[in-house]
Amino acid sequence: MVVRIMGEGQVRLADSHLTELNKLDDELLREMENGDGPGFRRTLQALLSKVRELGTPLPDESLEPSDLILPSPDATLQEVRDLLSDDGLIPG
């Protein structure tokens, strides 16, 4: 799957990593629901770091359609809420 981090670019990520990423996504949702700003910021950074770590960056000139779009590292709580689906940021 191709994942875009807003403001950074795209990475190719194996579907097998979704379970690991969903754990962080679930934690992020809980923190958002509880209004835990510092926890939200910490978990968002952890989620994006994990995507960068597990994914393979695509060249900047590559224009592949993104299967998943994640917020930028400096996104606000409201901006992330606007991106959420029923499953959170990560499907599944």
Rank of each mutant, 00 (worst) to 15 (best):
74 D>R: 15
58 L>K: 04
70 L>T: 10
72 S>I: 00
70 L>K: 09
3 V>A: 05
14 A>P: 08
23 K>I: 13
5 I>G: 01
82 D>V: 14
8 E>H: 01
41 R>S: 11
71 P>D: 09
78 Q>L: 11
30 R>A: 10
52 R>S: 13
38 P>S: 10
42 R>E: 08
20 E>C: 02
16 S>P: 01
63 L>H: 14
49 S>D: 12
59 P>W: 08
37 G>E: 09
90 I>A: 10
68 L>V: 11
68 L>C: 14
14 A>M: 03
89 L>H: 07
75 A>E: 02
90 I>D: 10
23 K>N: 13
42 R>N: 04
77 L>E: 13
30 R>W: 00
23 K>E: 11
13 L>D: 04
67 D>Q: 13
20 E>G: 03
85 S>W: 14
79 E>M: 14
7 G>K: 14
41 R>P: 04
82 D>G: 10
32 M>Q: 09
68 L>K: 04
22 N>M: 09
2 V>L: 08
57 P>I: 11
19 T>Q: 10
32 M>S: 08
9 G>A: 04
33 E>R: 13
90 I>L: 09
20 E>T: 07
37 G>M: 11
10 Q>Y: 00
31 E>G: 01
6 M>I: 06
17 H>C: 06
71 P>Q: 09
24 L>M: 03
90 I>V: 15
2 V>D: 03
66 S>V: 10
56 T>I: 15
66 S>L: 10
59 P>K: 11
17 H>V: 06
39 G>I: 14
